[in-house]
Amino acid sequence: MPKPKVIIAKLGLDGHDRGAKVIARALAEAGFEVVYTGIRQTPSQVIETAIQEDAKLIGISILSGSHMELIGELMRIMRERGVSIPVLVGGIIPPEDRDALLKMGVAGVYGPGTPLREIIDIVKKLTGVS
């Protein structure tokens, strides 16, 4: 049985997609069905994608510095649409913003240097895969 579907997306005006692709690839290798949306997604596109794909987790990569605005918007739209899907944020996130993101309801924030094994484990935990 394949593992649940997860979405990996790049939010906002940010073309640095290497990290997102590496994460997507690693999760696919770990047995997940990973939908990669590509770059320059709006928060509503990401939520719509997650709904249409019946995704069990959303992974967001942001390196542009607009994470507070974009993630805030993402979480607001998710509440509006009445769905609740765990969100992980990766990319360049200053340490002082980390708590604020977690307070918004993000399930975890992972910066550069995080071992792939750790990412796979947290995704497994959040999607209920043993």
Partner: peptide, 14 residues
């Protein structure tokens, strides 16, 4: 799908 891991990298939506 990978015949070995069962995983899949799905990029058609891009």
């Amino acid at each position: 799908s990978s015949p070995f891991t069962g995983g899949s990298f799905m990029g058609n939506r891009i």
